[in-house]
């Protein structure tokens, strides 16, 4: 799954490689789509980590696999299955719990079964199409950002910007219901509805990110930049902006690294950049405590 163009010319010198970076169409598409995906993931991830709903993100990443495999098995458009699956299950998870948040045992059971369904669809897909092997399944699990067409890249960018814009518009009430749900409820903020809207946006982001970095890896793009931002600043809007910005930079850096070293798949490079950013922040920025410092060290 390495870059087709770079592979043809072998291992290039770093400078020579960088020179041709944007002349390759597959690289342009990757940057266009990757920017939209990173923006949406960074912004959605900030709320995901702040609301301690990372497990929901984990569940949605596996649901993305099932949705895509269902679409492939029934010969429908892959993106249709992806988005129907992720947004649908996100809303289901929201409806299963009070205040739009389900217990993690409920989430675990639901997504373990949905993953079982994914295995069923994978089986149907691989046996019903004698010519193909399981490449479709692997592509869904790990993504193929270097394989996007012109249209796909533009759609991904547009969707990413739209999701990001919706999250920015909803940022203030979302922060309110996250940080102090009781006061928000007393002020008449619709906690449950907002929680559901957020989950729908998260589902959209998960579907969007699956195309590029794959169902199994999108959790990293949701979690790592957001965790880095939350570790570095306590100010909510600065943190939100930092999370989105970091996701963008880490996405670009990952793409460049994968271009320079064709043996490294792009999804892997993006993960390394994202996780590296978080590790660096934890090492450099001293651990900060929030306003409420009364936590016990029991766990």
């Amino acid at each position: 799954m390495s870059a087709p163009g770079a592979l043809a010319s072998g291992h290039l010198l770093a400078v020579a490689g960088l020179g041709g970076l944007f002349s390759q169409p597959f690289m342009q598409h990757a940057f266009v789509a990757g920017s939209g995906i990173a923006l949406a993931s960074g912004l959605a991830g900030y709320f995901l980590v702040l609301r301690s709903q990372v497990f929901t993100g984990d569940a949605l990443s596996h649901v993305a696999f099932t949705g895509a495999m269902a679409a492939l098995a029934f010969g429908a458009d892959l993106r249709l299955g992806l988005f129907v699956g992720t947004v649908g299950v996100a809303l289901l998870i929201g409806l299963l719990g009070p205040r739009g948040r389900a217990d993690d045992v409920v989430i675990g059971n639901v997504f373990a079964w949905i993953l079982g369904l994914g295995v069923l669809f994978l089986g149907v897909y691989t046996t019903s199409r004698a010519t193909s092997n399981s490449t479709g399944g692997i592509g869904v699990l790990f993504g193929s950002i270097f394989g996007l067409s012109d249209d796909q890249a533009l759609v991904a960018l547009g969707l990413g910007v739209m999701l990001g814009a919706a999250l920015v518009i909803l940022a203030r009430p979302l922060l309110f219901i996250t940080v102090d749900p009781d006061v928000a409820g007393a002020r008449g903020v619709p906690i449950r509805l907002l929680g559901l809207v957020f989950l729908a946006l998260l589902g959209g982001t998960a579907g969007e990110a699956t195309q590029a970095i794959g169902a199994l890896l999108l959790l990293g793009l949701l979690t790592a930049p957001a965790a880095t931002a939350l570790h570095s600043t306590a100010r909510p809007f600065a943190g939100l902006a930092l999370s989105g910005g970091l996701a963008l930079v880490e996405m670009w850096a990952g793409l460049v690294l994968s271009y320079l070293v064709p043996d490294l798949p792009p999804s892997f490079c993006i993960m390394v950049m994202a996780a590296g950013g978080y590790a660096a922040a934890r090492l450099v920025v001293p651990a900060r405590r929030d306003r409420t410092t009364s936590g016990s060290d029991a766990r």
């Binding site: 702040l50 301690s52 890896l217 990293g220 979690t223 790592a224 965790a227 999804s267 993006i270 410092t293």
Partner: peptide, 25 residues
């Protein structure tokens, strides 16, 4: 770090998972 508004363990776990799965790929 405990005593934060969000769960630190969650963030660490998610990042570890994604990074290791990246290595798998």
């Amino acid at each position: 770090t405990t005593g934060r508004a969000f769960s630190d363990e969650n963030a660490v776990t998610g990042t570890v998972q994604a990074l290791l799965l990246g290595f798998g790929f």
